[in-house]
């Protein structure tokens, strides 16, 4: 299955061009152009990795990150920043972002980070599956609790 990527940046042309490049590299890419739109998308759909611009009008990258981590804690986030906002990107890392990149970024570096982020998400999911399987073995009734 392709890695599901959501690209969030208010620079529409940047998003369009980068989306195309990531699609060529076999990623399943969706795009949105504001923090508010991103939060709605995250509620409705599952993404493996979100690439998130730090400085956007309205809801900024760190606010969006908080929403993502509340709603989809396993979704990994890579922050995109111009130099002026490196400190915001670092505070994003403290809030649980996987990594950050300076804009404009090298595409190979970006795809490497997307792949690493996806890998971490997959490992986390695997650990959760294993823990649940152990839980069901020791306490089969807990499976019913999970289905509620």
């Amino acid at each position: 299955m392709k890695t599901r990527v959501l690209l969030v940046d208010d620079e529409e042309q940047f998003v369009e061009q980068l989306s195309e490049r990531l699609k060529i590299r076999e990623y399943d890419v969706s795009a949105c152009y504001s923090g508010e739109e991103a939060v709605e998308q995250i509620k409705q759909y599952l993404y493996d990795v979100v690439i998130l611009d730090v400085a956007m009008p309205g809801m900024d990258g760190n606010e969006v990150l908080k929403h993502i981590k509340e709603q989809r804690p396993l979704t990994e986030v890579i922050m995109l920043t111009g130099h002026a906002t490196v400190e915001s990107a670092i505070s994003g890392m403290k809030l649980g972002a996987f990594d950050y990149l300076m804009k404009p970024c090298d595409t190979d570096e970006l795809t490497r980070k997307i792949d690493n982020a996806y890998q971490r998400k997959a490992e986390q999911e695997e650990r959760i599956r294993t823990a649940k399987a152990e839980q069901y073995q020791t306490s089969p009734w807990s499976a019913l609790g999970d289905k509620k």
């Binding site: 042309q13 490049r21 060529i24 111009g82 970024c105 595409t107």
Partner: peptide
């Protein structure tokens, strides 16, 4: 300079896309 970096980012991705194609 932040705005100029955005402009450069768009040029970079557009040129990169042409190269990819």
């Amino acid at each position: 300079t932040h705005e100029v970096k955005n402009v450069l980012a768009i040029i970079q991705e557009s040129a990169g896309l042409m190269e990819d194609i």
